[in-house]
Amino acid sequence: MGRRRAGALAVTTALVTGLVGAVPGVAQAYASSATGTINTSGADLNVRSGPSSGYDSWRTVADGASVTLLCQTTGQSVTGTYGTTTMWDFLSNGGMVSDAYVYTGSDGQIVNSCVYVGAEPSSKTNPRSPNGAIDWAFQNYRSTAYENLCLKFTALAYGWGGSGWSTAEIGGDWESSHGYLNTSGIPPRGALVWYHNSADTGHVAISLGEGKVIGTSVGGAVGVAGYLDHGSYRGWSVAYYPNAY
Protein backbone atom coordinates (compact mmCIF):
# COMPACT_ATOMS: atom_id res chain seq x y z
CA MET A 1 0.00 0.00 0.00
CA GLY A 2 1.07 3.62 -0.37
CA ARG A 3 3.07 5.15 2.41
CA ARG A 4 1.21 8.43 2.81
CA ARG A 5 -1.40 10.56 1.19
CA ALA A 6 0.08 13.61 -0.50
CA GLY A 7 -1.14 17.01 0.52
CA ALA A 8 -1.48 16.39 4.25
CA LEU A 9 1.81 17.93 5.22
CA ALA A 10 1.44 20.21 8.23
CA VAL A 11 3.67 23.16 7.40
CA THR A 12 3.02 26.79 8.21
CA THR A 13 1.62 28.89 5.41
CA ALA A 14 4.79 30.97 5.25
CA LEU A 15 6.90 27.87 4.69
CA VAL A 16 4.57 26.38 2.09
CA THR A 17 5.08 29.42 -0.10
CA GLY A 18 8.80 28.62 -0.16
CA LEU A 19 8.33 25.15 -1.63
CA VAL A 20 9.25 24.63 -5.26
CA GLY A 21 7.78 21.86 -7.40
CA ALA A 22 10.09 19.14 -8.69
CA VAL A 23 11.22 20.30 -12.14
CA PRO A 24 13.89 18.41 -14.12
CA GLY A 25 17.19 20.27 -13.95
CA VAL A 26 16.00 22.64 -11.20
CA ALA A 27 17.13 22.29 -7.59
CA GLN A 28 14.38 21.42 -5.11
CA ALA A 29 13.77 23.89 -2.30
CA TYR A 30 12.34 22.59 0.96
CA ALA A 31 10.79 23.97 4.11
CA SER A 32 12.99 24.89 7.07
CA SER A 33 10.70 22.92 9.40
CA ALA A 34 7.59 20.78 9.26
CA THR A 35 5.29 18.85 11.56
CA GLY A 36 4.88 15.08 11.52
CA THR A 37 3.10 12.43 13.56
CA ILE A 38 4.71 9.28 14.93
CA ASN A 39 2.92 6.12 13.82
CA THR A 40 4.26 2.83 15.18
CA SER A 41 0.89 1.13 15.75
CA GLY A 42 1.39 1.26 19.49
CA ALA A 43 5.00 1.09 20.60
CA ASP A 44 7.19 4.00 21.65
CA LEU A 45 9.75 4.94 18.98
CA ASN A 46 13.43 5.16 19.86
CA VAL A 47 15.02 8.55 19.23
CA ARG A 48 18.59 7.94 18.07
CA SER A 49 21.76 10.01 18.21
CA GLY A 50 22.30 9.49 14.48
CA PRO A 51 20.71 8.04 11.33
CA SER A 52 20.90 4.34 12.20
CA SER A 53 19.43 1.91 14.71
CA GLY A 54 23.02 1.21 15.71
CA TYR A 55 23.34 4.65 17.25
CA ASP A 56 22.48 5.30 20.89
CA SER A 57 18.82 5.49 21.87
CA TRP A 58 18.75 8.28 24.43
CA ARG A 59 15.01 8.77 24.66
CA THR A 60 11.70 7.65 23.13
CA VAL A 61 8.70 9.36 21.60
CA ALA A 62 5.17 8.00 21.97
CA ASP A 63 3.02 6.60 19.19
CA GLY A 64 0.72 9.37 17.99
CA ALA A 65 2.97 12.17 19.22
CA SER A 66 3.42 15.28 17.12
CA VAL A 67 7.05 16.07 16.27
CA THR A 68 8.85 18.92 14.55
CA LEU A 69 11.26 18.03 11.74
CA LEU A 70 14.15 20.47 11.24
CA CYS A 71 16.13 18.62 8.55
CA GLN A 72 16.44 15.21 6.90
CA THR A 73 19.42 13.03 6.04
CA THR A 74 20.14 9.60 4.57
CA GLY A 75 21.15 6.66 6.71
CA GLN A 76 20.26 3.05 7.46
CA SER A 77 17.44 1.54 5.43
CA VAL A 78 14.46 0.88 7.70
CA THR A 79 11.14 -0.82 6.99
CA GLY A 80 8.29 0.55 9.09
CA THR A 81 4.70 1.73 9.02
CA TYR A 82 5.19 3.67 5.81
CA GLY A 83 7.33 1.20 3.88
CA THR A 84 11.10 1.12 3.42
CA THR A 85 13.25 4.23 3.38
CA THR A 86 16.80 5.43 4.02
CA MET A 87 15.54 8.85 5.11
CA TRP A 88 15.97 9.95 8.73
CA ASP A 89 14.35 12.95 10.35
CA PHE A 90 16.20 15.30 12.71
CA LEU A 91 13.78 16.42 15.41
CA SER A 92 13.63 19.63 17.39
CA ASN A 93 14.81 17.77 20.54
CA GLY A 94 18.16 17.04 18.86
CA GLY A 95 17.62 13.38 17.98
CA MET A 96 16.77 11.39 14.86
CA VAL A 97 14.05 8.91 13.93
CA SER A 98 13.48 6.90 10.78
CA ASP A 99 11.04 8.55 8.39
CA ALA A 100 9.46 5.11 7.98
CA TYR A 101 7.52 5.80 11.20
CA VAL A 102 6.64 9.47 10.65
CA TYR A 103 3.47 10.63 8.94
CA THR A 104 4.30 13.78 6.99
CA GLY A 105 1.84 13.60 4.10
CA SER A 106 4.60 12.89 1.59
CA ASP A 107 6.73 9.94 0.52
CA GLY A 108 9.64 12.22 -0.29
CA GLN A 109 11.85 14.82 1.36
CA ILE A 110 9.94 17.73 2.89
CA VAL A 111 12.51 19.79 4.83
CA ASN A 112 16.05 20.91 4.12
CA SER A 113 18.89 18.38 4.12
CA CYS A 114 20.96 18.25 7.30
CA VAL A 115 24.26 20.12 6.87
CA TYR A 116 27.45 18.43 8.11
CA VAL A 117 30.69 20.16 9.02
CA GLY A 118 33.61 19.94 6.62
CA ALA A 119 36.50 17.57 7.19
CA GLU A 120 39.39 18.42 9.48
CA PRO A 121 42.90 18.61 7.91
CA SER A 122 44.19 15.19 6.88
CA SER A 123 47.34 15.74 8.95
CA LYS A 124 45.26 15.17 12.09
CA THR A 125 42.23 13.07 11.20
CA ASN A 126 39.86 12.37 14.06
CA PRO A 127 39.40 8.72 15.07
CA ARG A 128 35.62 9.19 14.99
CA SER A 129 33.30 10.76 12.43
CA PRO A 130 30.88 13.54 13.39
CA ASN A 131 28.05 11.04 13.82
CA GLY A 132 30.35 8.77 15.82
CA ALA A 133 31.37 11.65 18.09
CA ILE A 134 27.77 12.67 18.61
CA ASP A 135 26.84 9.07 19.39
CA TRP A 136 29.57 8.90 22.06
CA ALA A 137 28.31 12.16 23.53
CA PHE A 138 24.76 10.82 23.77
CA GLN A 139 26.02 7.66 25.44
CA ASN A 140 27.01 10.01 28.26
CA TYR A 141 23.75 11.96 28.24
CA ARG A 142 22.96 13.41 31.69
CA SER A 143 26.35 12.32 33.05
CA THR A 144 27.92 14.69 35.59
CA ALA A 145 31.39 13.15 35.23
CA TYR A 146 32.60 15.76 32.74
CA GLU A 147 31.59 18.98 34.49
CA ASN A 148 34.42 21.55 34.11
CA LEU A 149 35.94 19.26 31.48
CA CYS A 150 34.11 20.51 28.39
CA LEU A 151 37.19 20.49 26.15
CA LYS A 152 38.17 16.97 27.20
CA PHE A 153 34.58 15.85 26.66
CA THR A 154 34.60 16.97 23.01
CA ALA A 155 38.05 15.46 22.40
CA LEU A 156 36.98 12.15 23.93
CA ALA A 157 33.86 12.23 21.78
CA TYR A 158 36.01 12.47 18.67
CA GLY A 159 38.11 9.53 19.83
CA TRP A 160 41.14 11.24 21.38
CA GLY A 161 42.57 10.86 24.88
CA GLY A 162 42.83 14.64 25.19
CA SER A 163 42.79 17.80 23.11
CA GLY A 164 46.32 19.02 23.77
CA TRP A 165 45.02 22.39 25.00
CA SER A 166 44.68 23.26 28.66
CA THR A 167 41.43 25.24 28.29
CA ALA A 168 38.65 25.80 25.78
CA GLU A 169 39.60 29.49 25.72
CA ILE A 170 43.06 28.57 24.45
CA GLY A 171 41.56 26.13 21.96
CA GLY A 172 39.15 28.74 20.64
CA ASP A 173 41.99 31.26 20.39
CA TRP A 174 44.01 28.79 18.32
CA GLU A 175 41.11 28.06 15.95
CA SER A 176 40.56 31.81 15.55
CA SER A 177 44.20 32.74 14.96
CA HIS A 178 44.60 29.96 12.37
CA GLY A 179 41.51 30.88 10.37
CA TYR A 180 39.24 28.02 11.41
CA LEU A 181 36.72 29.98 13.48
CA ASN A 182 33.50 30.93 11.70
CA THR A 183 31.39 33.66 13.25
CA SER A 184 28.41 33.55 10.89
CA GLY A 185 25.86 30.90 10.07
CA ILE A 186 24.34 28.17 12.21
CA PRO A 187 27.01 25.65 13.27
CA PRO A 188 26.74 22.55 11.04
CA ARG A 189 26.44 19.06 12.46
CA GLY A 190 29.70 17.88 14.04
CA ALA A 191 31.26 21.34 14.39
CA LEU A 192 33.00 22.46 17.56
CA VAL A 193 31.10 25.42 19.02
CA TRP A 194 33.23 27.84 21.06
CA TYR A 195 32.36 30.31 23.82
CA HIS A 196 34.01 32.75 26.22
CA ASN A 197 33.07 32.57 29.89
CA SER A 198 33.53 34.68 33.01
CA ALA A 199 36.34 32.42 34.30
CA ASP A 200 38.39 32.98 31.09
CA THR A 201 38.61 29.21 30.62
CA GLY A 202 36.09 29.20 27.78
CA HIS A 203 33.57 26.57 26.85
CA VAL A 204 33.09 24.24 23.89
CA ALA A 205 30.34 21.88 22.73
CA ILE A 206 29.54 19.77 19.67
CA SER A 207 26.92 20.91 17.19
CA LEU A 208 24.01 18.61 16.40
CA GLY A 209 23.00 20.97 13.59
CA GLU A 210 19.93 23.19 13.21
CA GLY A 211 20.92 25.34 16.18
CA LYS A 212 21.36 22.49 18.70
CA VAL A 213 24.50 21.45 20.59
CA ILE A 214 25.40 18.67 22.98
CA GLY A 215 27.93 19.28 25.71
CA THR A 216 28.60 19.67 29.40
CA SER A 217 27.07 22.21 31.79
CA VAL A 218 23.50 21.85 30.58
CA GLY A 219 21.68 21.87 33.91
CA GLY A 220 24.85 20.57 35.54
CA ALA A 221 25.31 17.59 33.24
CA VAL A 222 25.75 16.50 29.62
CA GLY A 223 22.71 17.66 27.70
CA VAL A 224 21.24 19.33 24.64
CA ALA A 225 20.91 23.11 24.37
CA GLY A 226 20.52 25.83 21.79
CA TYR A 227 23.86 27.03 20.46
CA LEU A 228 23.19 30.54 21.77
CA ASP A 229 22.02 29.39 25.21
CA HIS A 230 25.55 29.71 26.59
CA GLY A 231 26.69 33.30 26.97
CA SER A 232 29.50 34.89 24.92
CA TYR A 233 29.27 32.79 21.76
CA ARG A 234 32.50 32.98 19.74
CA GLY A 235 31.77 30.89 16.68
CA TRP A 236 32.25 27.39 15.30
CA SER A 237 35.06 25.45 13.65
CA VAL A 238 35.75 22.12 12.03
CA ALA A 239 36.55 19.46 14.62
CA TYR A 240 40.29 20.02 14.45
CA TYR A 241 42.59 19.20 17.37
CA PRO A 242 46.14 19.77 16.05
CA ASN A 243 47.77 18.70 19.32
CA ALA A 244 45.41 15.87 20.29
CA TYR A 245 46.83 12.65 21.67
Score class of each variant (00 low, 15 high):
residue 212 K to M: 03
residue 117 V to R: 04
residue 181 L to F: 11
residue 184 S to A: 11
residue 163 S to Y: 05
residue 70 L to R: 15
residue 22 A to S: 11
residue 193 V to D: 01
residue 139 Q to S: 08
residue 22 A to D: 10
residue 141 Y to T: 01
residue 201 T to Y: 01
residue 127 P to Q: 00
residue 185 G to Y: 00
residue 28 Q to N: 11
residue 23 V to Y: 11
residue 156 L to T: 11
residue 92 S to V: 05
residue 31 A to L: 12
residue 38 I to F: 01
residue 8 A to Q: 15
residue 63 D to N: 12
residue 195 Y to R: 00
residue 238 V to I: 11
residue 194 W to N: 05
residue 186 I to W: 08
residue 237 S to L: 11
residue 156 L to E: 13
residue 239 A to E: 02
residue 242 P to Q: 02
residue 93 N to W: 05
residue 153 F to K: 10
residue 210 E to W: 02
residue 153 F to V: 06
residue 77 S to D: 07
residue 95 G to P: 11
residue 119 A to D: 04
residue 189 R to K: 14
residue 86 T to C: 03
residue 69 L to K: 06
residue 112 N to F: 01
residue 171 G to Y: 03
residue 178 H to T: 12
residue 81 T to D: 06
residue 104 T to I: 09
residue 85 T to L: 03
residue 88 W to G: 05
residue 148 N to H: 07
residue 50 G to D: 11
residue 43 A to P: 01
residue 130 P to N: 04
residue 5 R to E: 14
residue 175 E to V: 09
residue 102 V to K: 06
residue 164 G to M: 01
residue 75 G to H: 07
residue 191 A to G: 08
residue 67 V to W: 04
residue 245 Y to A: 12
residue 204 V to F: 05
residue 206 I to P: 03
residue 49 S to D: 12
residue 34 A to Q: 09
residue 100 A to W: 02
residue 170 I to Q: 13
residue 104 T to A: 09
residue 144 T to E: 03
residue 35 T to P: 08
residue 157 A to Y: 08
residue 2 G to M: 14
residue 30 Y to Q: 11
residue 216 T to A: 03
residue 110 I to L: 01
residue 8 A to I: 13
residue 90 F to E: 12
residue 222 V to T: 01
residue 49 S to I: 12
residue 168 A to G: 03
residue 154 T to E: 03
residue 21 G to A: 02
residue 91 L to E: 04
residue 92 S to W: 09
residue 210 E to D: 11
residue 21 G to V: 05
residue 13 T to L: 15
residue 234 R to P: 08
residue 103 Y to L: 08
residue 13 T to F: 15
residue 59 R to W: 12
residue 205 A to R: 07
residue 74 T to R: 15
residue 94 G to Q: 07
residue 110 I to A: 05
residue 61 V to N: 08
residue 175 E to P: 00
residue 215 G to L: 04
residue 70 L to A: 09
residue 106 S to F: 11
residue 180 Y to K: 12
residue 10 A to C: 15
residue 77 S to R: 14
residue 75 G to P: 10
residue 41 S to H: 07
residue 132 G to F: 00
residue 165 W to H: 12
residue 197 N to I: 01
residue 119 A to M: 05
residue 87 M to S: 08
residue 231 G to V: 05
residue 100 A to D: 05
residue 97 V to W: 04
residue 124 K to N: 10
residue 218 V to H: 05
residue 47 V to A: 13
residue 23 V to K: 13
residue 65 A to Q: 10
residue 44 D to M: 13
residue 127 P to S: 02
residue 157 A to N: 12
residue 64 G to N: 07
residue 243 N to E: 00
residue 167 T to W: 11
